[in-house]
Design a protein around this nucleic acid. Structure first.
Length: 583
RNA sequence: GCGGCGGUAGUUUAGUUGGUUAGAAUGCUGGCCUGUCACGCCGGAGGUCGCGAGUUCGAGUCUCGUCCGCCGCGCCA
C-alpha cells in the first residue's frame, strides 16, 4: 500500500509522489488549510490539505479526527522559510495531499497516547493503544533484536532450537503449578512448565548435544515489579560440557544481545563465590555498581563489656557481627534519619542497629562506652574509617544479620543516590551451596538436578554444588549448573532431600531411568529474558517489556482473564467448582 | 496470607472543620479561522466522588466492610 514510511522521506524526495499509511496523530484545522501529523511505526510527517491543491482531499480531511487510519497520496514539498519544525525528524518537508482515504475511523480515545501522566491501569485496559506510542515500539523492537541475536549466536555455536511441551507433568516441588484439566482423562491434570529443565536434560540424553529455546515458563506465585506469572527464558543446555563452557557461551551470548541493542559490554565478567557475596553484601545477587561492603568485626565485639554483643560474639560459627561503613555519613544523615534506619532493619527481624560516628576527637556513639580505647582503634582500622564516616553494626544469627544488613545496604545506596544508572555491572556468583535447611527441612538451593561437589560432608549445608548465577546490577538475570548425569548421585540427592523412593519414582522416575541409558555429562543455564530487557531498556517494571502483561493480582485488564467458564465446559472436564467467591 | 499508598468528568487532578449548584486543565462537541505543529478564539455538553453499609439534620470528606491498582513482606525447588 505504502511507498515510504513516514520518516523515510526527506529533502532528497522533494517533488516525489509518495503514498503514506498510518494514523492521524493530530490535526490542525485552520478553516482553509488543514494540517495532519501522520504517524506510523517510524514516526511523524506533516500532511497539508489545501483546497487549492485538492478540493476532494480537503473535504475528506475536514472529517478526520485523532487516530483515524489514513492512506495519503501526494507530493513531497519543502517547507517555506521559517516554517520548519526542528522537533520533527521530517520537519524540513511536508506532503501536499492530492488523494486522501479514511481507511478506519476512530472513536475518541480513552486517553491521549504518549501522555506520561495517564495511569497504568487505564493503559493496560487499552494496551493496544498504549503500544502505539513510540517508546513502546522501541522497547519491543529491542526485544526482537535481542532474541534474534541470541538465536543467531547460539545457532552459530551449534545449538539446536527445540520446543518442549507446554502441557506437561506437575512437579510441585518448587513453585506452584498452573494446572490444566484433561478432558480425555477425567480428574487428571497437566501442568504448565515452570521451566523446561527436565526436558532439556532428556534432549541431552537424546544426543542433541547442544539445545536452546526461547521458552515460556509459568509459575503460580504472587507477582512483583520484576515477576510475572508467565515469563520467558533463554534456556540452554550443553553436553560434554562443564561450568566454564556454559559461562563462555553465556558471556558471548550476552555480548551479542547487548550489542544488538546498541550497548557495548566487556567480557569476561567478574566472579564472586556465594559465601563471599553473602558475607560482604548480604545477598546472593549483589549490586556491585557501588561499594558499601560489610566487614566482620565479631572478634572485636567479643571483648566489649556489653553482654548482648559479647554473648553473640561467643558463637562465631552461627552468629555474625557485621560493620557497614557509610563514607561521610555523619554529614549526610540527620539524627532522625539514623533513628529511622533502626526501624527499617527491625522490619526484617533485627533487634537493633548500633552505630559509631568518627568525629575529630574519636569514635562516638551509644556503644562507645563498652569498648576499650584500643578496641575502638581496632574498629577504626578494620573499617578504614575517616572523620565524618558512620559505621553501622548488625549483630545476631548469621542468616538474619546478613539478610537485613544486605537490605540495609541497598536501602542506604538508594537513599544516598549513589547508584549509577548508566552502568552494567555483571557478576557471576559461584559455588552455591547444594542444600539449605529451613525449619529442619532440607531444600535444594537451585534444584535437585544440580551436581553436588562432594556429598560426603557431615553437615548437608556444607555441601557445595556446581551452580552459578549471573547477576546484573543486583538483579538475578539467570542461573545454571552442571547437572547430575549419574543415576546413583541423583538418587542420593533425592534421599538427602527427604524424597522417598516411591515419591522420586512417581515424580522423576522418567528422568532417573533416562540417566540409566547412557547420559552424557551436561550443564546449562537459563536467562530471564524479561528482566534482561527490563535492564537494557532501563524500565522499573517488567510489565513494560511484556506486550500483554498481567496486574499484581495476576489478572489481564484487557481480556478480563481469568474468568468463570460455563458449567458445560466444566462438566466435560469432570470439574465442579466448590465455591465462587466473586459471584 | 500480611503491611503501606491510592481510587473524584473520557484523562490528569483540586476539594479547607462534615454544610449552597463538586472546581480546574486537557480531551470531546458546535461555530469562526489559509501556515500551524501542544495552533488560536468564542460557546456547549460531560460526575453513581470505586462499590455497600453505618454515624449525622446533612458525607467526596468520618467509621466499618468490600473490590480494583501500585510498592513491598511471605512465597518464587
Amino acid at each position: 500500500m505504502r511507498s515510504h514510511y513516514c520518516t523515510q522521506i526527506d529533502e532528497n524526495d522533494i517533488g516525489t509522489e509518495v503514498t503514506l499509511c498510518g494514523w492521524a496523530n493530530s490535526y490542525r484545522d485552520h478553516g482553509g488549510v488543514i494540517f495532519i501529523d501522520l504517524r506510523d511505526k517510524s514516526g511523524l510527517v506533516q500532511l497539508v490539505c489545501d483546497p487549492v491543491d485538492s478540493k476532494e482531499a480537503h473535504k475528506v480531511a475536514n472529517e478526520i479526527r485523532d487516530e483515524f487510519v489514513l492512506i495519503a497520496k501526494g507530493k513531497v514539498r519543502a517547507r517555506g522559510e521559517g516554517l520548519e519544525n526542528k522537533n520533527l525528524k521530517t520537519g524540513k518537508i511536508e506532503v501536499v495531499v492530492e488523494n486522501l482515504t479514511v481507511e478506519s475511523k476512530s472513536e475518541p480515545l480513552p486517553f491521549v497516547i504518549n501522555d506520561p501522566k495517564v495511569g497504568e491501569e487505564t493503559r493496560l485496559k487499552y494496551r493496544y493503544l498504549d503500544l502505539r506510542k513510540a517508546s513502546s515500539y522501541e522497547t519491543f523492537r529491542l526485544r526482537s533484536k535481542a532474541t534474534i541475536a541470541a538465536r543467531n549466536i547460539l545457532d552459530a555455536n551449534g545449538f539446536l532450537e527445540v520446543e518442549t511441551p507446554i502441557l506437561t507433568k506437575s512437579t510441585p516441588e518448587g513453585a506452584r503449578d498452573y494446572l490444566v484439566p484433561s478432558r480425555v482423562h477425567g480428574g487428571e491434570f497437566y501442568a504448565l512448565p515452570q521451566s523446561p529443565q527436565l526436558f532439556k536434560q532428556l534432549l541431552m540424553v537424546g544426543g542433541f548435544d547442544r539445545y536452546f529455546q526461547i521458552a515460556k515458563c509459568f509459575r503460580d506465585e504472587d507477582l512483583r515489579a520484576d515477576r510475572q506469572p508467565e515469563f520467558t527464558q533463554i534456556d540452554l543446555e550443553m553436553s560434554f560440557a562443564g561450568q566454564e563452557d556454559v559461562i563462555k557461551v553465556s558471556e558471548d551470548m550476552l555480548k551479542a544481545v547487548f550489542s544488538a541493542c546498541g550497548i557495548s559490554i566487556n567480557i569476561p565478567f567478574n566472579r564472586i563465590p556465594y559465601h563471599e557475596a553473602m558475607e560482604k553484601y548480604g545477598s546472593d545477587k549483589p549490586d556491585l555498581r557501588y561499594d558499601l561492603a560489610m566487614v566482620d568485626v565479631i572478634d572485636i565485639f567479643a571483648r566489649c563489656e556489653n553482654e548482648i554483643f559479647s554473648n553473640i560474639a561467643k558463637n562465631s560459627h552461627i552468629n555474625r557481627i557485621k560493620a557497614l561503613k557509610v563514607p561521610n555519613g555523619d554529614n549526610i544523615f540527620s539524627k532522625r534519619q539514623m533513628k529511622g534506619f533502626e526501624d527499617y532493619v527491625r522490619k526484617f527481624g533485627a533487634s537493633g542497629l548500633g552505630y559509631f560516628q568518627l568525629k575529630e576527637d574519636g569514635l562516638k556513639g551509644p556503644l562507645a562506652k563498652f569498648f576499650s580505647d584500643a578496641d575502638l582503634e581496632e574498629i577504626i582500622k578494620a573499617t578504614d574509617l575517616k572523620v565524618g564516616d558512620v559505621v553501622f553494626f548488625g549483630a545476631g544469627e548469621k542468616k538474619l544479620v546478613l539478610d537485613y544488613m544486605g537490605r540495609f545496604r541497598i536501602y542506604l545506596a538508594e537513599l544516598m543516590e549513589i547508584i549509577p544508572d548508566d552502568v552494567f555491572e555483571f557478576v557471576w556468583v559461584m559455588d552455591f551451596p547444594m542444600f539449605e535447611v529451613e525449619d529442619g527441612r532440607v531444600k535444594a538451593l537451585h534444584h535437585p538436578f544440580t551436581m553436588p561437589k562432594d556429598l560426603d560432608k557431615e553437615n548437608v549445608e556444607d555441601i557445595e554444588s556446581i551452580a552459578y548465577d549471573i547477576v546484573l546490577n543486583g538483579v538475578e538475570l539467570g542461573g545454571g549448573s552442571v547437572r547430575i548425569h549419574k543415576p546413583d548421585i541423583q538418587e542420593a540427592v533425592f534421599k538427602l532431600l527427604g524424597i522417598s523412593d516411591e515419591e522420586a519414582e512417581e515424580k522423576f522416575g522418567f528422568l532417573v531411568e533416562a540417566l540409566k541409558y547412557g547420559a552424557p555429562p551436561h550443564a546449562g543455564l537459563a536467562f530471564g529474558l524479561d528482566r534482561l530487557m527490563m535492564l537494557i531498556t532501563k524500565r522499573s517494571s517488567i510489565r513494560d517489556v511484556i506486550a500483554f502483561p498481567k496486574t499484581q493480582s495476576a489478572q489481564c485488564l484487557l481480556t478480563q482473564a481469568p474468568s468463570p467458564v460455563a458449567n458445560d465446559q466444566l462438566r466435560e472436564l469432570s470439574i465442579r467448582v466448590r465455591e465462587n467467591k466473586k459471584a
